[in-house]
Design a protein around this nucleic acid. Sequence first.
DNA 1: AATCAATTAGAGAACGTTCTCACATATGAG
DNA 2: CTCATATGTGAGAACGTTCTCTAATTGATT
Lengths: 362, 362
Amino acid sequence: MAPKSKATITDVARAAGVSTATAGRVLGGYGYTSDDKKEQVLKAAQKLGYRPNALARSLITGKTRTIGVVAGDIQNPFYASVLRGISNVAEANGFGLLITNSDESQSKEVHSVELLAQKQVDGLIVTPSDTRKARHLHNLRGMGVPLVLIDRAVAGLMVDRVATDNIAAAEQAVRYLIAAGHRRIGIVAELVDQENDGLDGFLARAVAGDPIESETLYPSWQRLLGYVRAHRIEGLPVDPRLTIRAGGYSASAAQAALPRLMKVPGPPTALFTTDGTMSEGAMRGLSELKLSIPQDLSIICFDDLDWMSFHRPGITTIAQPRLAMGEAAARMLLERIHGEDYPPRTVLMPAELIERGSVAPL
Amino acid sequence: MAPKSKATITDVARAAGVSTATAGRVLGGYGYTSDDKKEQVLKAAQKLGYRPNALARSLITGKTRTIGVVAGDIQNPFYASVLRGISNVAEANGFGLLITNSDESQSKEVHSVELLAQKQVDGLIVTPSDTRKARHLHNLRGMGVPLVLIDRAVAGLMVDRVATDNIAAAEQAVRYLIAAGHRRIGIVAELVDQENDGLDGFLARAVAGDPIESETLYPSWQRLLGYVRAHRIEGLPVDPRLTIRAGGYSASAAQAALPRLMKVPGPPTALFTTDGTMSEGAMRGLSELKLSIPQDLSIICFDDLDWMSFHRPGITTIAQPRLAMGEAAARMLLERIHGEDYPPRTVLMPAELIERGSVAPL
DNA sequence: AATCAATTAGAGAACGTTCTCACATATGAG
DNA sequence: CTCATATGTGAGAACGTTCTCTAATTGATT
């Protein structure tokens, strides 16, 4: 009963009195086999506790039925949901999932990609940590490894991609605040360094309505752009003192930003936070400052986190379809793995505004 | 510059004018090689964009430097943190991570384990979905595959294990409530079916102080046991009507349980929830019933979720060291993989009570 | 009766590494 | 000088599968 140690296909073949080729055919389910031989082999395999060695199989077929994922941080609810989505379709198609964290560091990402490539994954899903240069990703493409990007694009890298329509979503959120009567609206965004002319320059160009290459912007910059556009559309000025750059992907960075924001002369009456982490930090900061929502400050967040529904008041937010994003990315990748050859596709998923109680009319 | 397609070690050897054996030695970093040959090989490898094929290497060495993980649900913050912990030490040791979800279903778990075993992982970390029977896990042990259990034990399966000291932690939480003057304390726990005599029988035995085989209890039953022990120690009766079985691992199950609990004649003045999911559901339920914390009901939770710190009031809770649990499990597994041969170890990690504002004195 | 296609089965190569062995060449001790 | 030991190299086996070939058998169709 207890399969002592690992039996190979040769062991099974010997036990069944057939050639390894025949045993391989019935066990691997390819080619022709007669019913009686099939039965013998199956019986022998059962008895020996045979388990196919996927390594050997993959070595010769060139397929591992494994996809590699480079996420920012599994622990972050955004990535956790996206991963779950990926996992759902991977599992449904018999694919395994090799997962790594980049912590938004390019060097860790390069390292991860190298690891996954060596393990011969059939394809990769990556949230690139640098949207400007990514030689390792270009290399992958050059070697024909299927690749799908999530959440961000890379300049000049023509591959499938799925992301939220950040600009539209942010614009919608801010216009919602404006419609409620708010005129001084703060924004807390991570806005990590971008190769361009800094926050001030960016704001100036955005406010002036200059064309901006928005595709390869980091999501937080895209959402800032949506913020500015909403102001433009509604004919409101943008006060740069209300645009706070947290400068890091951490809740504590956002938390630290909040006192700065509220100290501005003519402080904001409403706040827009550009992602889950910023939202959490902002909530921490508000709690620390003993400010009440929405009496002291209205707030609209980005990304619908679990607690937002039962928080008092409920938090009005822009919900990204995180699970669906993961699923879409995985599906696109599988299509590529199966050899489909369309031109690169970009799937921009719509976000949904969920009204709860954190925005009060002014 | 651009590595066209995949170069093998044979290609590199040919380009460098040496044997594949020599090329293998310098590229694989084993055996002796002279400095000049080393340089030639390295240069050739560089030029061809050589990337070692981990499959071929693993096939012959018998090691994949990959560990498999079967988690309940990556999306759940508990598993997400544990996974991050595992990922941290795996990555630090050059190991990859193959991750699957079981959704607490035994059949999915069996399927996952089979997949991972076929992919020849060097070891497995599992949160077993059934603590009674687990033939697939016993089989693994029989075949000598290193295995570490997280969060739960399996009857008769002597392997390394890391978990929270649930009984002690729950006891501490409930005694904290009792010390605050509460006498009628509700508990919302998932309490999925156990092969024993049901909730009533279990309670009767626990209240009577009968010995209970607690090692292989599901965590929620262990925490219920801690709840009962706290009552016993403090000389308080246990009212079975206040022990609510959600019957499922979902927030909505807990949410649905709340009205039932509050409808009991002589309703509770305080509530203990036995994990993050139950806590979230309970918060939803409270929000729905328009009950205020801690005026209408004091609450102490299990597992410290992000929102608990900035919720108003702050939520008093038992914090499990989730990250450290994952790290500990991964470290133990790596030791086994490296051949260490102690008797099976059980690491019970202490939980910490974090006082915030959700418990009011009665 | 001859031909063809479909089915069945085995021998042995192939996948890309590492491992074992045999054989050189140095180096140093006695 | 001789022996042992360390260093360096290549030929070819091995890992456990799938793939390619060849060949034999069957059954139906001309």
